[in-house]
Amino acid sequence: MSTKVKKMRTRRHTVVLNRSRGGDAGITVVLFILGFVMVVPLFYAILQSFKPLDEYFVFPPRFFVSHPTIGNYKDLFYLMSTSWVPFSRYIFNTVFISVAGTFGHLVCASLAAYVMSKMEMPGKKVMFQMVQKSLMFNAGVMGTMTFVILRYLGWVDTYWAVIIPAFQQSLGLYLMKQFMDSNVTTEILESARLDGAKEFRIFWSIAMPMVKPAWLTLIIYCFKDLWNQGAQASIYSEQLKSLNTGLSQIAAGGIARTGVSAASTVVMMIVPIIVFVIMQSNVIETMGSSGMKD
C-alpha cells in the first residue's frame, strides 16, 4: 500500500520519455483553457455571494465585486433563525441524515465487502455479481418503486426513508471489495485464522485498519450524496426536510434575496469540496483498485 504511493512520488525525478516540447505546450494550453472554464463559474459563485445588493443590478454587469461584504451570509443566518421551521432544524436534519446514513453504509458495506473478498463460502460470487450489475442502472429511476416499498414499510415521512436506503448503495461496497482484493493479503488473514482468531475479530482488527483509504472514500461519497439531497417524494413534513430544500426556499424569495441565495449556493457546495480536498489522496488510492473485470 505505502510502497505504491512512494513509487508515484518518485516518478517526477525520472526522465520523461517520448515527450515532444510542442505536445507538452499544446497540452498545457488545453489544460489551462479547460481549467479556466471549470473554475470561472465556481469563482463567480463565490464573488456573487460577497456582493452588496446594489452590485447585482448594475449595467453592464460586473464580474468582480467592488465593495465586498459578508452581509449576505449574515442575512442568510438571520433568515434561517426567523423562518417558520427554525433553520437549525434543517441543519440538524441534513447533518443527522448525512452522518447516520454514512455510518450505517460504512458498517454494512465493509462487513459485506470483507465477506465477499476474503471468505470462502457458497453464494458470495453471486451476491457480488448482483451488486456489480446494479452499478449499471441508476437508482434514481427506481424512485417510484422505492417509494412504494417505503410506504409499505410505513417509513414515508420519517428520517428512515432517506437513511436506510443509503446503507445499501452498491458503489461503496464495490469500491471497498475491490480495494480489499488488492490490498489485504490472504496470508495475513490465514495466519490469524490459524492462531484461532474469530472471523469478526480478524475483520475488525486486521482487515479494517488496512483499508483506511477505502473507508474514507466511502465516507466522502455517501456523505456527499446525502448532503446534496434535495426534495424527496418520501418526505413531505417541513420539519424533516433537508438543508438543501430549506435553502432553496429562501433563495426563491425574489430579487431581494439574490445575495442570500448566492451565499446559500456557496455554503452548500463548499462543504463537500473541503471534505474532498482533505481526503483526496485516500480517494485516489482507493480508485486505483476500482477497475472492473468480469
Binding site: 458495506a109 459485506a112 465477506v115 458470495k124 427506481m142 422505492t146 461496497l173 472471523e199 469478526f200
Partner: peptide, 24 residues
C-alpha cells in the same frame, strides 16, 4: 459468521435495489 456479516447489507440491498426492479 460470514452469512451473518453479509446479511445487513444484502437484506437492505434486496429490499431497495433488487425488489424495485422486480416490482417495476
Amino acid at each position: 459468521i460470514g452469512y451473518l456479516m453479509v446479511a445487513p447489507y444484502m437484506i437492505l440491498f434486496f429490499l431497495f435495489t433488487f425488489t424495485p426492479v422486480v416490482l417495476s
